[in-house]
């Protein structure tokens, strides 16, 4: 039981998607794969209580998700969604604004640069995010989430806007960072190349849409 991060039972969302019972282990990289529309993103949103199931249960560290304070849970189990949002401002202003929302002190420039490097970005911190490409914005977004050092990070298609070579170096850097900082990682991806490149659990979602 101790090595199980998430466990689901008879999980159903909105009376539309049934999930086969699954376990997500600690200490391993967990890849969630499956056809589009099979509920991969929904599953992540159920894990951080962004959504609630219609039936069934999710356990996090052995405890039912309903028993958690959702705000604390989401800080601990961070979901980097596919839909990127950045403020129309520079990189450092973005960090500043997100940290203000979290009511935390803004990290130093060194830490911000380090987090950008983890995501394979080498930009001056005053670079305007509005002039970046989709892939660059996606990586700044991920860097911000990672910088909060959650206990679990769930990445939903983190490399959808990148080519294969870049995808692999970004994921490999992120995994290394997470290992050093004891962050559990769950990655939803449909990218075969990425999945084959890294060791880890593969959780395949069957198409169970009613």
């Amino acid at each position: 039981m101790n090595n199980i991060l998430f466990q689901t039972e008879n999980l159903n969302y909105n009376n539309m998607i049934d999930f086969a019972d699954l376990k997500i282990e600690k200490g391993k990289v967990n890849f969630i794969i499956g056809e589009s529309g099979c509920g991969k993103s929904t599953l992540l949103r159920l894990f951080n209580a962004f959504l609630s199931p219609a039936r069934g249960s999710v356990r996090y560290n052995g405890q039912l998700l309903e028993e958690f304070d959702t705000l604390k849970l989401r800080k601990e189990v961070s979901l980097v969604a596919q839909e990127v949002f950045l403020f129309d401002a520079s990189i450092s202003d973005n960090f500043k604004q997100f940290y203000e929302y979290r009511e935390l002190d803004v990290p130093s420039d060194e830490i911000i640069s380090k987090m950008l490097k983890v995501c394979c970005l080498d930009f001056p911190l005053d670079k305007d995010c509005t002039s970046m490409s989709g892939g660059e914005r996606q990586r700044v977004y991920t860097a911000i989430f990672l910088s909060f050092n959650p206990k679990v990070i769930m990445l939903d298609e983190p490399t959808s806007a990148l080519d294969e070579k870049n995808s692999i170096s970004v994921i490999s850097n992120i995994l290394e960072y997470c290992k050093e900082n004891n962050i559990e990682v769950i990655i939803v991806t449909h990218d075969m190349a990425v999945r084959q490149q890294f060791d880890g659990n593969i959780i395949s979602l069957e198409r169970c849409v009613q």
Partner: peptide, 17 residues
């Protein structure tokens, strides 16, 4: 909506959002 969802995922309270 994206801003709201992003901040929600970061554990920011709906009130502050």
């Amino acid at each position: 909506r994206r801003k709201i969802d992003t901040l929600t995922n970061l554990g920011v309270s709906p009130k502050n959002i």
